[in-house]
Simulated scan of single mutants.
Amino acid sequence: MSPISIGVLAIGMSVDAMIASLGRRAAQTRPTFRRAIGTGMVFGIVEMITPLIGWFLGVVASQYIQAFDHWIAFGLLGAVGTHMAWNSLGRHPETPVDGGSATMLALIVTAIGTSLDAMAVGVSLAFLDVNILLIAAAIGAATMVMSTTGMMIGRYLGAQFGRYAEVLGGLALISLGALILHEHLTAATT
Score class of each variant (00 low, 15 high):
residue 39 T to F: 00
residue 83 H to Y: 13
residue 20 A to K: 04
residue 146 M to E: 03
residue 55 W to A: 03
residue 93 P to E: 07
residue 50 T to Q: 00
residue 130 V to I: 12
residue 161 F to M: 13
residue 34 R to G: 11
residue 146 M to S: 15
residue 74 F to M: 07
residue 93 P to T: 02
residue 56 F to H: 08
residue 141 A to F: 14
residue 55 W to Y: 04
residue 66 Q to N: 15
residue 154 G to D: 12
residue 86 W to Q: 04
residue 145 V to N: 04
residue 12 G to W: 06
residue 117 D to A: 08
residue 132 I to M: 10
residue 77 L to Q: 01
residue 171 L to Y: 00
residue 97 V to N: 04
residue 142 A to L: 08
residue 163 R to C: 11
residue 47 E to R: 04
residue 152 M to R: 13
residue 34 R to L: 12
residue 51 P to A: 02
residue 151 M to V: 11
residue 190 T to S: 08
residue 53 I to Q: 04
residue 180 I to G: 01
residue 68 F to D: 04
residue 8 V to W: 13
residue 186 T to I: 05
residue 122 G to E: 07
residue 5 S to M: 10
residue 14 S to N: 10
residue 80 V to R: 01
residue 7 G to L: 07
residue 78 G to F: 03
residue 134 L to G: 15
residue 96 P to S: 06
residue 88 S to M: 06
residue 148 T to E: 07
residue 146 M to K: 11
residue 158 G to N: 08
residue 153 I to R: 12
residue 117 D to I: 14
residue 114 T to Q: 06
residue 151 M to Q: 12
residue 4 I to S: 14
residue 54 G to S: 02
residue 92 H to G: 14
residue 160 Q to M: 09
residue 139 I to G: 09
residue 47 E to Q: 11
residue 168 L to E: 14
residue 143 T to V: 11
residue 109 V to P: 03
residue 115 S to W: 09
residue 134 L to T: 15
residue 118 A to K: 06
